[in-house]
Each structure stands twice: as structure tokens, then as C-alpha cells.
């Protein structure tokens, strides 16, 4: 069915879509590839890790919510630059961003994830899961690191990552969309462009299905994050009140 769809969409349009999405991605990355290469082996020392671990649960939650809130702004900017997104009604723009921004961030995270030593960039240096011990969310953190390893194994190029994040953002099955058909059309074209990009590199035929097979784990992580946030809010209402406004807006149901 997708091959019939591909025929309808001229390859000229596919290239135009790919270029727009890749350009939008590269322009809205928090870290350039060079920065990440330079930082890749800047690891937290054991003392710095212990300092992170000795932080209070509230302080660590506040710190992480701030990082997520900053990163969300780049995802909003990414979405705005994707052809067709701003033509959607604003209700749907908000729904797609609220439902999809964390999934986009989880995919973007692999650019700052080093599978060789299982570390991720956090506030300027790389560290392992133990950095986040004081959050009290070991299951969530280990799921995120597992996802990072799995996605890194696919060795996505910048182009593939850009198109995959755009396709995930433009998910027509998000609840309460008013024009899901319009979103479906956009996503279809982006998936065709992504398949085209994968084939261009002669990488494994089933690379796209491997990428799509990671979506359930991402959804589980997003739901787990919401559960942890709700639980934290019950225990520490004042701290949760002071979470960054954008973080609260996106994740408060």
C-alpha cells in the first residue's frame, strides 16, 4: 500500500520533504554534532557522581524538569519548521506537541548517548545511570538507558533521525485530534521520505521496521514518566508547584 502511495507522491516532493525536515532538525538541535563529539569523553568523576547522588530527591527532580523544559522548546521550534505543521489548527498543534515531545526527545537523546560506556550527556558531562539515583526512579532511568542502547544499535544518520522524529511527532492516532486525516497525510509522506533515505544508504531492508518497533518502549517510558511525576507531586506538592511552567503545561493532564 505504501508503494502505491509512493508512486502518487513524486520523488521530487519526497526530496523536498526530506530536505525541509532535515534542515528543520539540524537548525533546532540543542547540541551540534561537533559539540557532542568534543564532550563525548568528558565524564563525571566519581566525586561528582557522589555529589549528584547526595542531592535531595526534590532538587534532582527540579534539575531534571528544567533540562526537559529547555529541550522541549527546541522540539517546539523543530515542529514549527516542518512543512505543514503550522497549517494544522492550533488545537492539533498543541495535542501533537504535548503527546509527542517526550518521544522526540527520547530519540534525539541518542545523539548525546555513548553506547560504548553506557553514558549520557547531562549538564555538560557524560555519566551513567547512577547519576540519577536520587530521583528514586531507577526503573524509569534504566528503561531510558535501555532505549538509548537499542536505538544506538540502529546507527541512525542525522537524516534518518530527523525524519523519524518528525514522523513520530505527526502521529495521527493521538487522542482528540480534530484533523487526524491531515496529520496522517503528513506522516505518510515523511515515512515515504524516510524509507527513501534508508534505501539510499543501502542499509538493512528492515531498518524502518526496527525503528518503528521501538515505539512501544518509548510509549511505556512516557507513561512511566507521567506516573512518576504524579507520584512525586503527591509527595512533594510545593516542589512540583515550582517546576518550570512549560514542563507543567506539557505534562500536567
Amino acid at each position: 500500500e505504501s508503494s502505491q502511495l509512493a508512486a502518487e507522491i513524486s520523488s521530487l516532493e519526497i526530496d523536498r520533504i526530506a530536505q525541509n525536515v532535515v534542515k528543520s532538525h539540524l537548525e533546532t538541535c540543542q547540541y551540534t554534532t561537533e559539540e557532542l563529539k568534543r564532550l563525548a569523553w568528558t565524564l563525571y568523576s566519581p566525586e561528582e557522581i557522589r555529589a549528584l547522588q547526595s542531592k535531595s530527591c526534590e532538587a534532582m527532580w527540579q534539575q531534571c524538569s528544567l533540562q526537559i523544559s529547555n529541550a522541549i522548546q527546541y522540539v517546539v521550534e523543530f515542529a514549527k519548521r516542518i512543512d505543514g505543521f503550522m497549517e494544522l489548527c492550533q488545537n492539533d498543534q498543541i495535542i501533537l506537541l504535548k503527546a509527542g515531545c517526550l518521544e522526540v526527545l527520547l530519540i534525539r537523546m541518542i545523539r548525546a548517548f555513548n553506547p560504548l560506556n553506557n553514558t549520557v550527556l547531562f549538564e555538560g558531562k557524560y555519566g551513567g545511570v547512577q547519576m540519577f539515583k536520587s530521583l528514586g526512579c531507577d526503573d524509569l532511568i534504566s528503561a531510558i538507558f535501555e532505549l538509548g542502547r537499542n536505538l544506538c544499535r540502529l546507527q541512525l544518520s542525522d537524516e534518518e533521525l530527523a525524519l523519524f522524529t518528525a514522523a513520530v511527532l505527526l502521529s495521527p492516532d493521538r487522542p482528540w485530534l480534530t484533523e487526524s486525516k491531515k496529520v496522517q497525510k503528513l506522516q505518510d509522506k515523511i515515512y515515504v521520505a524516510l524509507q527513501h533515505e534508508i534505501q539510499k544508504k543501502h542499509s538493512a531492508e528492515d531498518k524502518l521496521s526496527k525503528m518503528v518497533s521501538k515505539l512501544p518502549l518509548m510509549k511505556t517510558i512516557c507513561n512511566l514518566h507521567l506516573d512518576k511525576m504524579e507520584f512525586f507531586r503527591l509527595l512533594h506538592p510545593e516542589t512540583a508547584m515550582n517546576f518550570p511552567p512549560l514542563y507543567k503545561e506539557v505534562f500536567n493532564s
Binding site: 533546532t28 529547555n70 517546539v76 521550534e77 492550533q90 504535548k98 511552567p245 512549560l246 503545561e249
Partner: peptide
């Protein structure tokens, strides 16, 4: 709109300061 005023504002105008 009230419930999502920051998202609305980000969608409307400027991008993050350092982009």
C-alpha cells in the same frame, strides 16, 4: 488557550533565545 498559554506563545512567536 489559557491552559496552554506558553505553548501557544512559543508557537506564535520567537524561538528559544540561543537558536
Amino acid at each position: 488557550t489559557e491552559r496552554h498559554k506558553i505553548l501557544h506563545r512559543l508557537l506564535q512567536e520567537g524561538s528559544p533565545s540561543d537558536i
